[in-house]
Design a protein around this nucleic acid. Structure first.
Lengths: 260, 260
DNA sequence: CCAATAGTGTCTGTGAGACAGTATGCT
DNA sequence: AGCATACTGTCTCACAGACACTATTGG
């Protein structure tokens, strides 16, 4: 048996039974909003990064721990959005097919005890995070052989109710847009006005007027303008901007209006 | 020992350990926003109405059950707002003082087994409800000798982190104001424009211009005007209004702007 | 008459949205 | 020059907010 697995199994008793956290980690790349997903070993089964809660651990710290383990990032925007507690949500169609579970056990990826633990009813609390995708090296956990960014428009089928969890997180993201450090968290330090507008368009799922967007954003006065960015393309070069962190955070407390 | 208590104790094994729900039930009366609280038997200790979750019960159904038991109301607005999972939140200062617990046990209100159950760490999910205060007869539960409405401006000291839970619910209420059937849930069927404005003022904690409020609300076109209400006071009698339920709900889906 | 509150009207400033016009970088 | 995109300006409409005016009820 895998050494890690053995240790993990021994630690099961240190976890609160029946509770878990799942993280919807958002990133933005190539004009796509993406989430970080794990692919289970030797399967085509995908899942959100998640984990259990130690008996002496705050719920939020458990989410933070999962985030750090998968991304290495400590200080990112992390927020609870909903707790999923339907009785049927834990019905794991994948593990219920004994064929797969036995295969996994035969290969030393699961143990009987762990399988039983996983088949209990779980109440899971969803947290979402906003991260700069270019500063992260996703790390698979012990049960997964890959950890990848997937566009929210082309999500694979996920275990349990993880598709619903992502849908709820997206809804929350849209509603909370005016209060979240969207740009600062999801974009690199310097970016063009087009980058920022495209990000808002992707989240709101509708086009925004280029001119009006720029005027409105600049009027809010939380961006610093830098040198122009020579792209090599046959057109006028755009300015680069960065956030005036202090001004931005003050504004976010009140909320930045972007119903448009 | 109390018969109910005995049955309750036998049912402990049917509950999920370590999880609970707490309901912040809002009502509106005499121009005050109020919450429903329980006072523990033979003490001055107040608490939110709450309960445990049966192993085969949806989380939301548990909240609904608590609501029904305390208010008798089935179809009211009920929504999850946050899950509280700090390790220290369950530290029950009241029950930790052995004097009180022993007194309660001596009087047959608590048993040793129940006390131990209560002293575990709990993760609780907060739900809030909006109800018409005049249509409710609050019912104390088996551990309480009264169930009363208390103004949010003069809350007593509550057990555990229940004061924080109420604070979070209020914050959520304020943010979600534009998407909640505030008026329909908290006001009687017929009400004056002043009633509605006062309700918004209490929740937003700031005065609203009388004229502008009326103009804006009427323009939204979800109110039906009825006969005037002769109050007997030496002033012009106000009209009574009621909600056009269908129009109101359509509007709420988009959100009614009331930043003002 | 007056006091008190209800209901309506008016004015101003701001800002969203549509769209046009100018500027710039490269071929 | 011509193309593509960046940036800026202008116009209109709607609405929030301040505030004034009229209407009604009862003392």
């Amino acid at each position: 048996m895998d050494d890690f697995l053995q240790k993990f199994e021994q630690r099961l008793k240190d976890y609160i039974p029946g509770n878990s956290v799942d993280c919807v980690i958002f990133g933005y790349q190539n004009q796509r909003l993406k989430v970080l997903l794990l692919k289970w070993k030797q399967t085509d089964v995908w899942a959100l990064p998640g984990g259990f809660i130690f008996k002496d651990e705050h719920l939020e710290d458990a989410a933070q721990r999962v985030l750090i383990e998968r991304t290495g990032l400590k200080s990112v925007y992390l927020k609870q959005f909903y707790t999923f507690g339907n009785t049927q949500r834990s019905t794991n169609a994948e593990l219920a097919t004994t064929a797969l579970s036995e295969q996994l056990m035969a290969n030393g990826i699961l143990t009987k005890e762990l399988l039983e633990w996983l088949q209990n009813r779980f109440i899971t609390t969803g947290y979402f995070a906003l991260v700069d995708i270019d500063h992260i090296k996703p790390q698979p956990d012990a049960f997964s052989d890959s950890c990848e960014w997937q566009s929210i428009d082309e999500l694979p089928s996920l275990i349990l109710d993880h598709n619903k969890i992502i849908a709820k997180a997206l809804e929350f993201l849209k509603v909370q847009l005016n209060y979240l450090p969207i740009g600062q968290s999801l974009l690199p330090k310097k970016f063009t006005m087009q980058d920022l507008r495209r990000l808002y368009e992707v989240i709101l799922r509708k086009p925004l007027d280029r001119g009006n967007f720029q005027r409105k954003i600049l009027k809010l006065d939380f961006l610093v303008r830098h040198e122009k960015q020579m792209t090599g393309a046959a057109n006028k070069a755009p300015y680069l901007y960065s956030f005036d962190k202090r001004k931005y955070e003050v504004l976010l407390k009140e909320g930045i209006g972007f119903s448009s």
